[in-house]
Design a protein around this nucleic acid. Sequence first.
DNA 1: AGACAATTAGACACATTAAGTCCATATGTC
DNA 2: GACATATGGACTTAATGTGTCTAATTGTCT
Lengths: 190, 190
Amino acid sequence: MQILDAALPVFVRYGFRKTTMADIARAAGISRASLYLSFSSKEDVFRAGSARAHRQTMVEVEVALKGQGSVFDRIEAAVTTFQRGLIVPLGASADARELFEINMALAADITLETRQRFLDLLSLALREAADKGDINLDTVDTEPADLAGIILAAMSGIKEMRGAEPDLGDNTRLFMRLLRAAVTPHTIAG
Amino acid sequence: MQILDAALPVFVRYGFRKTTMADIARAAGISRASLYLSFSSKEDVFRAGSARAHRQTMVEVEVALKGQGSVFDRIEAAVTTFQRGLIVPLGASADARELFEINMALAADITLETRQRFLDLLSLALREAADKGDINLDTVDTEPADLAGIILAAMSGIKEMRGAEPDLGDNTRLFMRLLRAAVTPHTIAG
DNA sequence: AGACAATTAGACACATTAAGTCCATATGTC
DNA sequence: GACATATGGACTTAATGTGTCTAATTGTCT
């Protein structure tokens, strides 16, 4: 939907409150009257926009997880894709907090569903890798689902760490190296 | 004035219309009531902010013009300083057009005065260089003031050229090379 | 041409928000 | 305790935004 593609940058730029239906219509190149033919309210536009962004990003995430390379490479690619699609755009806004809260107020279901689906996909990838012996979860004595949960939790924490020197990508890559070192099959020396 | 330092980024971010006195007060870390003790209206804040930015930038421009290097180096430094102080910040805003128009509506005098002063400073630098023989204006058969005018005109035109590939800095440097080549003392071969 | 659907400008009633003013009350500072 | 400065909050008025509706416009199809 071209309207949503036009609307999201407007929300990111001005925040939810300062964005008007006139702003969105102008950005989409249509009249305000037409905008109301497609969406019943500003909330409606936002919800649909959020849903679209989540859907779209998850498609890309699945592609990344089915791509080439080791489990680590694929998970890192998936995580990066997820961040690029849903975290970075909001983080770039000065109204990041407002947008996050509005999103939770208007599209919590979509957001939580997406998070769960991402969790499931990561779990699956880890389980398959464990079954094939590519990684060894015994070292950390855990289940794939729990490890996937930790990955998401770390991402979430890293996301909140705005202001510190290293950026999102650096922290994410560092965490991935940790993960890689921890579950790569190996024996304790000695 | 710390209030103006806080206010300008807010105007740049939201544009004039969407910026409220509450936004400015919050950014400045004071109450709305206090803000009205210093400024009588939003227009007043903007005018004062524009004046401050212009004054401040011109001080830096004068420093650049009195610095080290050839006339070209100093003029290029001055032009870059001018752009960094007054052009780039506005250009970074999605509401650049609105801000420019508001500025002309509320602070045209300051803006035009500054432009004139910049013109005078450039003229003076060029005249001194011509007198010392560092540059030769006979080649282009012109007066320092006219040449300074062309420099400003080119800057103005380059500024408007948003969207094209090369950025502000690249175009500015290219123009400076042109200028340098044109008035550096030389004889026609042959 | 004339029927058709899609889009629009514009006006509208209503609700919300911002501007600008005011004051009683803090919060220091001398 | 007097003085200056800053503040939350209330208030009026003006401006702006929302959501709805209609008559007019536009382009398309036949």
